[in-house]
Simulated scan of single mutants.
Amino acid sequence: MYDFKPATPLAPEELYRELLAATDALTADEPDSVANMANVAALLWEFLPDLNWAGFYRVGAAKNGAVDELVLGPFVGRPACIRIPFGTGVCGTAAQSRATQLVADVHAFPGHIACDAASQSELVVPVLRDGVVVAVIDLDSPSPARFAEADAAGIEALAAMLSARI
Rank of each mutant, 00 (worst) to 15 (best):
V133D: 02
R83P: 04
L128F: 11
A42Q: 13
V132T: 11
Q96F: 14
L44T: 06
S163D: 12
L48I: 15
L158K: 04
L158Q: 03
T8Y: 11
P126W: 05
T8P: 01
R17W: 00
A28G: 02
G131A: 07
G111D: 09
L19H: 02
M1N: 00
V136S: 00
E69K: 08
P144A: 09
V106W: 15
T8K: 14
E46H: 14
A28R: 14
R98K: 14
P144C: 02
V59D: 01
V103G: 04
R17S: 07
P79V: 12
F4H: 14
D3Q: 10
A152F: 08
Y16W: 13
V90S: 10
V71D: 05
G60W: 06
C91D: 01
L72P: 06
M37P: 06
P126I: 02
N64C: 00
T27K: 14
T8I: 13
D32G: 08
A153M: 01
A118H: 09
E13A: 13
C91T: 10
A66M: 12
P144D: 04
T88G: 03
G65H: 11
L162K: 03
P49A: 06
L20S: 07
A42V: 10
L20T: 00
G92I: 01
I137D: 11
S33H: 07
Q96L: 10
P142E: 03
L162V: 05
N36W: 05
E30Y: 08
M161N: 05
A94T: 08
C81R: 03
L51N: 04
Q101Y: 02
F109Y: 06
L102G: 03
D151F: 01
V76S: 11
V67Q: 13
A117F: 08
A145W: 01
W53Y: 15
A114W: 02
V90E: 05
D50T: 10
V134L: 02
V106P: 10
G154H: 01
V132D: 10
V106N: 01
M161K: 05
E122I: 07
F147E: 00
P6I: 15
V134I: 13
L48Q: 03
A150C: 10
A150H: 10
T100I: 09
L70V: 11
A148G: 11
R98M: 09
C81Q: 11
D29S: 14
C115A: 15
M161H: 15
P144K: 10
F75C: 09
L43V: 07
P144Q: 08
A38F: 03
L139P: 03
R129M: 09
L51G: 09
L102I: 05
V90I: 15
L43W: 10
S119L: 13
E46F: 10
Y57S: 05
L128N: 02
K5N: 09
C81D: 11
L10P: 04
P49L: 02
I155T: 08
E149T: 07
D151S: 07
G60K: 05
G55W: 02
C91K: 01
A114H: 04
I84S: 04
L48C: 06
L20G: 00
A35L: 14
P74E: 15
